[in-house]
Design a protein around this nucleic acid. Structure first.
Lengths: 343, 343
DNA sequence: CTATTTTTGAGGTACGTACCTCAAAAACGT
DNA sequence: ACGTTTTTGAGGTACGTACCTCAAAAATAG
């Protein structure tokens, strides 16, 4: 049987009330007594029953995911996983909600953040690009006592804020290495297609990609990033242009989370089978294209893991605990036809 | 505020006692009343507070990992993760223990299983090779009311038992594809080193590897599997022999979870830099060899994920719940220098 | 030493659920 | 309508912890 507060009181030679005072940092206990209790905790290996504590406190965690209003296949998967996790965690006093309201306009995002109150949420996971406005709004949000994690978008270590997502520089570097290795000794140009290069995420990926290409693959040269701005018509045009101007394109790196329009344009403008093509994120579409051989590899982050990680992190922060680092490290997955799994 | 049993009683127009009878399947309730309560559950969205229920029941889960007595770096990492998870879950009424007792002799394993009683454990995760003896002992264990999952070793779908681990056929296929792609047009032989080919896991990996090689890479031919039997001396000898007999070896696939002895023997017998070399499992050693370029890729399963998955599965089974499928799918990770992460 | 302050103990209630008992009410068979 | 059985309600205790009050004890100041 696991020791309870009662056992702890007996072991420390004090009353339950004193144990309670020490455990919850209440005043009116001599330093000497505090030490005695802490020693007893160590000695008998007391561990607070978090469930019982939460029950007694009437504690429940209200976390909200703030997502972009418009989105693609990848975002759809993320949303599915949030719903799934919400259902799974409901029995553990976790209320997971979701708001699709953020836009690329940082002012809109900032405004939404400014309206959040700790009376309504305990923590939020924000999926929004880096910007000074959002950063300020976030800081004020934290000051008001709301836990915040940056979700998917952003970068680790830049500011003292928890970040759940992959290292985009590493993602780009991984893509670069794979593309280079898959192409072997072949010489030629590499097409790079991005939705926009205005986001830090894209810039970092490109940077990582170039680092590896320059250092490791002198036989290849990466073309300037094509920007599609999410417009299929424009995508078709710029991609077709590139193939017309560069007959020696041997591969392509589609660095945005939405691979479909770029890949469709690419297939229309040239024959994908002779090229090595890499994309990001696992969606029904990229899976299909991996299976049929159009895509050679996909660099992905696991949406379910991202979601659960964000929830666990918010929960740990709400409890004033340190999260389990090894679990919250988001892995950069490399997917090829063979390791897609049975789904 | 989330509805409680009290709210449910009011909503269903019955007493707390009746609600309790329905919720816990106790007898003495008219079908009609049961239906009314269930409808009220749906209507008000009642969700049982699992923590409170466990507290009231005095329920605590005692799970045990049964591991091989002898092991390597990979097993060491698994053990670390078990300890870590055990510490993290202690506050949630989970007692995670561990026994390093299993050997390759199925009789020993079976004997240990036969001694387990539901009075001492609620569930076990067994890491042992497939064998009729173990299978029988497992079946009896389940009949005695102990939850069982097959851990890492074994294969999914073969028997009606939960399996936590990767699909070894897919693992081999993944290795085959990567090796083939990395070698490009080069022609030659591929060395295959295994600890033993007596285990189903090894056989499956080899099978998956060959499937891809045969179909996709006619320029390469895989040599018969070398067996090391965990003996460094023997390893050195057979590997050196192979290189002497086959000067046209261009790559190697080390398919056991312990890469070190094979790779060391390989480096002694030949120059690794001209070859493409793949190994399994992430350990400090394989990480180092990926970073310095000796290894080209590593196929891995995440030990932390494996451990937590096993625990969640045992817990779900103990509660009579279905586990969250998407979470328990163990991914087959491909690691290269660039996506190792910051650790 | 006494007066005051600080520390401690004893006891209670509460959280949401499980599980128990006993009596009352309803439904049933004849 | 009777007795019998089934169903329901009312109430209690418990789990481990939080948080509260009040009085008693101990430490400290004067």
């Amino acid at each position: 049987m696991r020791p309870t507060t009662k056992d702890l009181a007996k072991a420390a030679g004090v009353s339950l009330a004193t144990v309670d005072r020490v455990l919850n940092g209440r005043p009116g206990v001599r330093k000497q007594t505090v030490k005695a209790v802490n020693e007893a905790i160590e000695r008998i290996g007391f561990i607070r029953n978090q469930s019982a504590a939460n029950l007694a406190r009437g504690r429940h965690y209200r976390f909200q995911f703030l997502l972009p209003e418009t989105g693609n296949d990848f975002l759809a998967t993320v949303i599915e996983r949030i719903e799934e996790a919400g259902a799974a965690f409901r029995s553990e006093s976790l209320d997971i909600s979701m708001r699709r309201a953020l836009s690329n306009d940082p002012h809109v995002t900032a405004k939404i953040l400014s309206r959040l109150s700790p009376k309504r949420v305990d923590g939020v996971a924000i999926m929004a690009p880096e910007s000074p406005q959002v950063r300020d709004a976030t800081t004020r949000l934290i000051e008001r006592g709301v836990e915040v994690v940056q979700f998917i978008s952003g970068q680790p270590g830049l500011r003292p804020l928890d970040f759940i997502g992959v290292d985009n520089h590493a993602a780009g570097a991984t893509a670069g290495r794979l593309l280079g290795r898959f192409l072997g000794d072949r010489e030629g140009k590499v097409l790079i297609v991005s939705e926009t290069m205005n986001s830090l995420d894209s810039v970092e990926r490109r940077l990582g990609f170039d680092t590896v290409m320059t250092a490791g693959f002198p036989n290849l040269s990466a073309l300037p990033s094509l920007e599609t701005y999410g417009d299929p018509e424009r995508t078709r045009k710029v991609v077709a242009n590139s193939y017309a101007n560069h007959p020696d394109i041997v591969g392509a790196y589609l660095l945005s989370s939405e691979a479909r329009p770029a890949l469709q344009a690419l297939c229309k403008a040239s024959d994908p089978s002779g090229q090595v093509i890499l994309a990001h994120e696992r969606t029904a579409y990229t899976e299909e294209k991996l299976r049929d051989g159009t895509l050679d590899a996909v660099i992905a982050q696991n949406p379910g893991h991202l979601v659960r990680s964000a929830i666990r992190l918010l929960r740990a922060r709400s409890d004033g605990r340190e999260p389990l680092a090894s679990q919250e490290q988001i892995r950069l997955e490399i997917l090829i036809k063979e390791n897609l799994g049975r789904y």
